[in-house]
Design a protein around this nucleic acid. Structure first.
Length: 204
DNA sequence: ACGCGTAAACAAG
DNA sequence: CCTTGTTTACGCG
């Protein structure tokens, strides 16, 4: 055991096999988290997302935004998003997450869930453009929502609540073996903003 | 036991 | 990997 190991305060792994999920809890005081929530709601360039399924083009109620070190392309559903340059607040939060997890990120996908009716279905973050087995840092602001993981083969599930101002990190082979979701709920009527810091592969 | 509200699995477009 | 509807399960008073 090395007392100088900079991972000494990494939280325990929530997954019992084939992946790593660390929940760090809130990284800041509630007042500061409140301030970030307000800034993010007002200053991020939110847009309704587009999804094409079964030949239909669907505009989601959930809103998204895409920021990065460079104008990275994020392509799906016949549309390409170009990453916007970091704002001061996003850059600060990126550095806060990087310091906390001891890793670096070059981009951030943001999601805005206006209320509990909006959620995210089971999926894995296994996009081709993402660094393989790269860590994904997920910062949450606003409404405390349930978040769940399901092992693709065994169907084992693990769930937790993501607190205001908290950080969750998924890394290693988590995306290969586990799916995750944000279940809708009738109990919540206030917004949640989620920032997922990622590492995009450099492109030509 | 029953009714109610919510959650979750599932299917379909 | 969205949205809605159906079905089943569950906790609670």
């Amino acid at each position: 055991m090395n007392l100088f190991d900079d991972n000494i305060d990494t939280p325990i792994n929530l997954l019992h096999k084939q992946g790593t999920v660390n929940y760090y809890g809130p990284l800041m005081a509630v007042e500061e988290a409140n301030r970030y929530l307000t800034v993010l709601l007002n200053e991020v360039e939110w847009k309704n997302d587009v999804a094409v399924m079964f030949g239909k083009r669907i505009i989601t109620k959930r809103k998204v935004a895409w920021y990065g070190d460079k104008p990275f392309k994020y392509t799906y559903s016949n549309t390409t998003k170009l990453a916007l340059p970091w704002t001061r607040e996003l850059l600060y939060l990126k550095e806060l997450v990087e310091e906390t997890v001891g890793d670096t990120f070059n981009s951030c996908l943001l999601n805005l869930y206006h209320n509990g009716a909006e959620g995210m279905a089971w999926h894995s973050d296994d996009e081709k453009e993402l660094k393989k087995n790269g860590a994904i840092g997920s910062l949450s602001f606003g409404a405390e929502r349930k978040f769940a993981f399901k092992h693709k083969q065994s169907k084992d599930t693990v769930a937790l609540y993501l607190q205001h101002g908290s950080l969750l990190v998924m890394k290693g082979c988590t995306q290969r073996y586990w799916a995750h979701r944000l279940p809708p709920t009738k109990m919540i009527s206030t917004p949640r903003v989620n920032l997922t810091f990622r590492t995009m592969l450099e492109e030509t």
